[in-house]
Design a protein around this nucleic acid. Sequence first.
DNA 1: GATCCACAGGAAATTAAGGGTC
DNA 2: GACCCTTAATTTCCTGTGGATC
Length: 443
Amino acid sequence: MYKLLITEKKNFDLDKFFDDYLESPNIFKDRNALDSSHIPENLPHRYEQIKAIAEITVVTLRNGIPSNLFIYGKTGTGKTAVIKHISKKLTNKCKRINNMACPNWIYINSNRVKSGYRVLATICNRLNPDDPVPPTGLPRDVLLDKLVNRLDENYGNSICFVVLDEIDCLRSKKSKDSILYLLSRINEILKKSKVILVGISNTLNFKDDLDPRVKSSLCEEELVFPAYKADEIYDILKERTKIALHEDIVTEGALRLISAFAARENGDARRALALLRKSAEFVERRNLKKLDVNLIYEAQDQLDSDKIVHFIRDLPIQQKMILIAVYLNQKFDPENSTNTGEIYNTYKELVKQSYNLNCLTRRRMTDLIKELDLAGIFESKVVSFGRKGGRTRVVDLIIEDAQIIKSFEDDSYWSELLQYIPSSVRRTDLNVYDGNLYRRLFE
DNA sequence: GATCCACAGGAAATTAAGGGTC
DNA sequence: GACCCTTAATTTCCTGTGGATC
């Protein structure tokens, strides 16, 4: 018999907690300076790229029309920061010149604004927020007319830079209908103003599949942002530390370690900043005086774990169901990979357990499995097992069971599903006690 | 070398939801 | 209110495929 040990806990004193926080030393000068969206005055190791883009865009100061620009480089290499930095400087310069029409800079993250209609609508709304266009419903040619009118009538002879970040998300099979084709031709319709496209991509081979006309138009000028090296990330962190933290909080060794971690992850400066911020928050919360190296390891683990847990919690319901199907198949047969056929069988059983969920087709399920593969939750590959097994996709879960359990621990519906035993493992030679599986040793 | 398995995955069609226009 | 338009998610249909087995 077990005795339940419950120690009586006092109520959490929120007022005292707030007072303690206010009395503790503030290690941050400007916390936001460690945010990836913060654009500093100085962007170390990007001078060449800044110079190249400045040379392309400077013609706007003499009412010239710059070329379209295509930028590529891996995540966290400063592409967006450099563009935003230049747009700010160029706009400020234009404002200081009399009778100078300032160029418009419209920044769109194509990962959030994915369809052609939405891109046009977003540009329309940024040009004239007082008269928003509907998020859906208008024929595309009507929307295009509205955009052309707003550009020509409201902005006269000025230039409008349209920055399409993560432009890969806008690629369309029907090249003539694609938004990129349309935007690359819009200057042929415009009478007064001009649109300059700035495409930003994380993938080097993005332009290979583009329609040749879009490619020649979009890639008039091209620029590569190389990944940062550890020393370069160190310099970036040093600059930001000066702005963000009080002196003597972070040692050189700590910055070097964070730089090395980030350099290992494709030279991602964004990751380095996140790690520095997390580590500094540990220092603050624990009332410490310095950033210890051990805290960086702890912050690194937590960043990885948090990222996965949040990602799983935000998944659509059907993808959660598929994730649990894979988890259960591997839980009861950890030695072998599971395949789409087995996953689909377990998935169908899980769907039957729920009240309001429709069962997707296998075709759709394979697409969702591929999405989870891309997200780094699964590792899958297509394998042929010949005449008996056919050709199928084998799937392995590459995150830890504990991360899945943690993701669902606050929701009884999902945590109960994690205890489900698929019919494929309810064999005669297996018995289940308390949710654990035992092989029957004798009859 | 032919056959067969169990899908993979492309493409087009369908459905649902949100909205505009007349 | 009927009809038209959009997006996004999903289904349906179909051809293709790798490799063990015949």
